[in-house]
Design a protein around this nucleic acid. Structure first.
Lengths: 106, 106
DNA sequence: TGTATATATGCACATATATACATGTATAAG
DNA sequence: CTTATACATGTATATATGTGCATATATACA
């Protein structure tokens, strides 16, 4: 995927805006923890809360952000709500990020 | 790259922190515009300033951020400074991001 | 030396954002 | 209908962040 030709055309204003919102969503430790946990498979809110040891309201707020930016999808089952990563892009970006970080250890 | 097994181990606290800083850097329209421009090849500060039509000081501030997070590298030539994308990861992440955005048009 | 050009940096400020606390809504169970 | 459980949402607030303005540094050139 790398070392190809640059982007055919520089993205439009609107795309830049959307894209920055998209990436911004990865830019918070709590949200990243949620995403990495979801990378293990579908999880409900309670189990996320327990895993991260963070207030339930905080988790819900962040899940709301993740939903809006389409980083996660969800499914209701009774009063539980199960979240999962929205598509493979999310997984790929996390992987590349980790690689970049780990290669950069000085 | 996608649909593989989840991350072997959930990243360490420090990796999460570094990673969120890394992604946060993509989460600003001005920085994204700089990155997309640099994806076309090495550019000096002046040309970036002209391309984006933004204050020189603002560009330098953002380049400083991009340098610290190792999204760009640079090279001095006389009093000019030429910036370029640091490694292929940066390019790849931008590409995946664009794909995600463009697929998501409702 | 002195001046112009290219870039970086310090500081201030307005805005954005993450979290805590309280409360609302929905579903299940008795 | 009442109570408990799972989750979402509203509001307030402290902190982080992007940008503008002024100024500093460095290199080239006269």
């Amino acid at each position: 995927m790398s070392n190809e030709h640059p982007f055919e055309n520089i993205p439009l204003e609107e795309e830049i805006t959307d894209l920055s919102e998209f990436f911004k969503t990865f830019g918070d430790p709590t949200r990243l923890r949620i995403l990495f946990f979801l990378a293990q498979g579908e999880k409900n809110v309670q189990s996320i809360t327990e895993e991260l040891g963070i207030q339930q309201a905080t988790i819900s707020h962040q899940l709301s952000t993740l939903r809006m930016l389409r980083l996660v999808s969800y499914r209701k089952e009774g009063r539980k709500v199960f979240y999962s990563l929205d598509d493979h892009h999310i997984f790929d970006i996390l992987k590349i990020g980790i690689h970049h970080i780990q290669e950069g250890q000085r």
